[in-house]
Amino acid sequence: MKLTVEEVTAVANLACLALEEDEKERLTGHLNQILEHFAELQKLDTSDVEPTDRVLPMVNVYRADEVKPSLPREEILAAGPLTNYEAFIVPRVVDSSDGKSA
């Protein structure tokens, strides 16, 4: 199982990375090298093994539904690369979907 440059480009697109051409080549080489090591895992039979997502044996960690002060807006927007003192500004979003429940 070898990844092609096209496949790596497709994955990079999913990750929102615009890779340079030479970068794609180099990355494809590295990835194939690493995937070989990953293949090691296929030696293990794990058909009856539960996956571990989290190591802590804890459940139901909650906070009470209480309102706490938000950050001052000036402070939030100060970090923004482009703002208009009320909101963050991005290039006009062409797709009119709002992402919600997409």
């Binding site: 309102v67 706490k68 009320e86």
Partner: peptide, 24 residues
């Protein structure tokens, strides 16, 4: 209809001036 947001203490109420109900 909670008072605060799902993962932080910012108010979940409808409306408000833009970006005034935000935290890290």
């Amino acid at each position: 209809l909670t008072n605060s947001k799902l993962f932080c203490g910012c108010s979940a109420e409808f409306g408000g001036e833009p970006n005034t109900r935000c935290c890290p």
